[in-house]
Simulated assay, not measured.
Amino acid sequence: MVGHETHYILPRPEFDRPVKVLIVVAPYYRDIADNMIDGAKAELDAAGATYEITEVPGALEVPTAVCIAERLSNFDGYVALGCVIRGETTHYETVCNDSSRALQLLGLQGLCIGNGILTVENRKQAEVRADPADQNKGGGAAAAALHLIALSRKWGGRTKGVGFKPASENILLAGNADGSTTA
């Protein structure tokens, strides 16, 4: 049984400069992935962001694709989408844990990632969570990425003010301003 508890949703952030996002999707369950993509695209469109979509074979490849894009491209943030449905083996735990852990580690390095990789017990749970008219987890992942981008822009230009800051750009180690060493 899928529950519908109400929860608070942060207001959509606004941006004064363009935002470019990469949606990385593992379309193992194509219909579920397509619904999640639709939800993510709608959220990004509503925020005025531009985006590209790339597909990878499975959920374990999503973090690697994000890492490659971060290293070789110019995206402000990432939306990770996929679906892992519990099966009869422990492979489910491996895929869920490792994909989530890798995305979290990338996030802790400063990447702005919305994690929309569903980890569910059955197909019905996945369908409800992926449906843009229902739980819209693709849209939620895009919103998370947008909020992290907004935070990184808010705090990106600041310094903590710790340590020595020279009074001017001219730093003299020894001597006078004219270059002489006489007193």
Rank of each mutant, 00 (worst) to 15 (best):
G175E: 03
K160M: 12
H147P: 05
G161H: 04
E55D: 11
L146F: 03
V95Q: 05
N115P: 04
A142E: 05
L108S: 11
G179F: 10
P27S: 07
I117Q: 02
G48D: 02
A183S: 14
A59C: 09
A142F: 04
A65E: 14
G157P: 08
L146M: 07
Y28N: 02
R71L: 08
C96S: 13
G139K: 05
I171D: 01
T89K: 13
L151S: 14
Y51F: 13
E121A: 15
Q109A: 14
N97Q: 12
I68H: 09
Q109C: 12
E43S: 04
L108I: 07
G82H: 03
E5H: 10
A144V: 12
G39P: 01
L118S: 07
S73A: 13
N170T: 15
V21Q: 03
I117D: 07
G139A: 03
T90V: 04
E121R: 13
G179I: 09
A46C: 05
S180P: 07
N35W: 13
G58K: 04
V56M: 06
N97H: 11
D178T: 11
A47R: 07
I53D: 00
D134T: 05
E55G: 02
D134R: 12
A33N: 03
L146G: 03
A126Q: 10
Y78R: 11
G116A: 07
Y8Q: 04
Y28L: 01
R123T: 03
A80H: 06
G179W: 11
D38A: 15
Y78F: 15
V19W: 07
Q125G: 01
L105Y: 09
A33K: 01
A65K: 13
V79T: 04
D98K: 15
K154L: 11
A142Q: 10
G82W: 08
Q104D: 10
G138V: 09
V128A: 11
D16V: 00
L146V: 07
L105F: 04
G107H: 01
N97R: 13
Q104C: 06
L173P: 03
Y92R: 09
A150L: 08
K20T: 00
T159Q: 14
G77H: 07
K154Y: 00
R12Y: 00
L81C: 05
S100E: 04
V128Y: 11
Y51R: 02
K160C: 10
Q109R: 15
Y8K: 12
I32K: 02
V95W: 01
P166E: 08
L106R: 11
E61L: 01
L118G: 06
I32R: 01
N176R: 15
T64H: 13
A47C: 03
G110C: 11
S73L: 10
S99V: 03
V162T: 13
L44T: 08
I113L: 06
K137P: 01
H147Y: 06
V24Y: 01
A59K: 02
S100A: 15
T181L: 13
L72S: 12
L60C: 02
Q135W: 05
T89C: 08
Q135K: 15
A42P: 00
G58W: 06
G3Y: 12
K41A: 00
N170I: 15
E5S: 00
D76E: 03
K41L: 02
A33I: 02
E93C: 04
S99Y: 14
G138R: 14
